[in-house]
């Protein structure tokens, strides 16, 4: 298998340095009060959305499958990791709830996150099998049905709160935590995509039959895409649960999967950069309208209530799709995410 999956290059180092620089900048702005906690919170949510969008992009964008139940994986990751951390927080009698958030706690948290990701990956592995038989819209329905089944299951497990939600989750997720994990996730998926394995995924998207004929094990690669995509969705779900301190079945419904799907498509199928930008842009847009609309109303001397926020949001979405049909990034990547040796081959797709 030609190139190794995990390679470190000068560009990658530059990318990491740039990302960490941005993190420091945000932390600095937050400390000096230029960025309120509100903005940090939006960044947190954007980052989690980045993981969700990039991991769905791996399944939908790079491998050409059609999954619309992505939040189902997030639910599995969230519930698994949060059950572990809340349980350990409870049975550690010496440590009151808030004091549990210490170094040991963080080790538990990281392990719990990984466990959540692994369990989600296991489910993703299972969901990958229908993709061998089903294509396009039919596969979409299967993934959707699966997402709804997951929700029904969590609604009926009283141990995790049923429709009350899983409560009292320790707040482990913070900006640094989320940022580092998002960065690692993005790098991992980027490295996968630019490896030989990534080429195989792309070949399935472009022409499944042809890629099989040239010897790509499409069965293995499709299931791999689902498994890895689900793993990262599970991680994102875990991060989100430990940020909001609640995991509720309704958070993982069809509508949220659709929102992630929009981020992937608006950013560009098969562009990691696009997914990152779209996740940030759409999250900030929905929050920005909260402030912008009443301001706009003041200018025009009319009262524009919060109920119009989503009207404008959906309208902007339509307009973006109509006038930016090539979507944000098409299949391009920012230079820092493309390995040096790739560049000479031009477009990687």
């Amino acid at each position: 298998m030609g190139k190794k999956i995990f390679f470190i290059s000068r560009r990658m180092l530059l990318f990491v340095a740039g990302a960490l620089g941005m993190l420091l900048l945000v932390l600095f702005f937050n400390a000096t009060g230029i960025f309120t906690d509100y903005i940090v919170q939006i960044i947190n949510i954007s980052l989690i959305n980045v993981i969700l969008a990039v991991s769905l992009n791996l399944i939908n964008g790079f491998t050409g499958q059609f999954s619309i139940g992505h939040m189902g994986f997030a639910a599995v990751g969230a519930y698994t990791s949060a059950t572990v951390t809340t349980l350990i927080a409870k049975v550690t009698p010496r440590l009151p709830y808030t004091e549990f958030i210490n170094i040991n706690g963080y080790i538990v948290f990281i392990l719990a996150l990984l466990l959540g990701g692994i369990v989600a990956a296991g489910i993703g592995f299972l969901i990958g099998f229908p993709s061998l038989r089903l294509k396009g819209d039919y596969l979409a329905i299967i993934t959707l049905g699966f997402g709804e089944i997951i929700r029904t299951i969590f609604n009926n497990i009283d141990y995790v709160g049923g429709p009350r939600g899983l409560l009292g989750i320790p707040k482990f997720s913070n900006l640094i935590m989320i940022f580092v994990i998002t960065l690692l996730s993005v790098i991992a998926i980027r490295n996968l995509v630019f490896s030989t394995h990534g080429r195989a995924l792309l070949s399935i998207r472009e022409n499944e039959l042809a890629s099989e004929l040239v010897g790509v094990n499409t069965v293995r690669y499709k299931i791999t895409a689902f498994t890895i995509g689900a793993f990262f969705a599970g991680i994102a779900g875990g991060l989100q649960a430990h940020l909001l301190q609640i995991a509720h079945p309704t958070q993982y419904g069809f509508l949220y999967s659709i929102l992630v799907l929009i981020m992937v498509y608006a950013g560009g199928m098969g562009s990691i950069t696009g997914s990152i930008i779209a996740a940030f842009a759409l999250t900030f847009l929905s929050e920005g309208l909260r402030t912008a609309l009443p301001g706009l109303g003041d200018l025009m001397h009319v009262k524009i209530g919060d109920e119009w926020r989503m009207v404008v949001y959906s309208l902007l979405l339509i307009i973006i799709m109509l006038f930016r049909t090539e979507v944000l990034m098409g299949m391009r990547e920012m230079k820092l995410l493309v390995p040096e040796e790739e560049e000479h081959h031009g477009q990687h797709a």
């Binding site: 930008i277 842009a281 900030f284 847009l285 929050e287 920005g288 912008a292 301001g295």
Partner: peptide, 9 residues
């Protein structure tokens, strides 16, 4: 778009 949103906020 992002910058605009941030500045609005």
């Amino acid at each position: 778009l992002t910058v605009l949103s941030v500045s609005l906020i």
